[in-house]
């Protein structure tokens, strides 16, 4: 039995699949986006009204970060985060999916 995780993710017997192309994004026991691709870049990639860095108000380096499905390249997580912050937003379902 499939269980919804969110718009993009489905849990099937503990594995996390892309809801759009069924690509396996995490095996059972792995974090939900463990096998997702990671795209990084300048914060301006977050949209035309994101002006971060002009002028530089903070010392810390920040970046645009996106987790993508390797199968269909759907954006699964999009954020602007401090470069030093590796783990920011994670989801783990502990209820069995069936």
């Amino acid at each position: 039995m499939n269980r919804r995780v969110n718009d993009n993710l489905t849990s099937v017997n503990g594995k996390i699949h892309c809801a759009h192309c069924d690509h396996v994004l995490a095996e059972a026991g792995e974090p939900a986006l463990h096998r997702a691709l990671t795209r990084r870049g300048d914060v301006a990639k977050a949209g035309p009204q994101v002006r971060a860095g002009v002028p530089a108000f903070i010392r810390a380096a920040v970046e645009f970060r996106q987790k993508l499905c390797p199968g269909c390249h759907t954006a699964l997580l999009t954020e602007v985060a401090a470069v030093d912050d590796v783990a920011t937003r994670e989801t783990t379902l502990t209820t069995p999916s069936d």
Binding site: G47, L76, T78, R89
Partner: peptide, 17 residues
């Protein structure tokens, strides 16, 4: 002002700064 604070969900983008 240095980074957007209205985060998106499920791949959605943040709002403006």
């Amino acid at each position: 002002k240095a980074m957007p604070q209205s985060s998106g969900m499920s791949g959605g983008y943040p709002a403006n700064t």
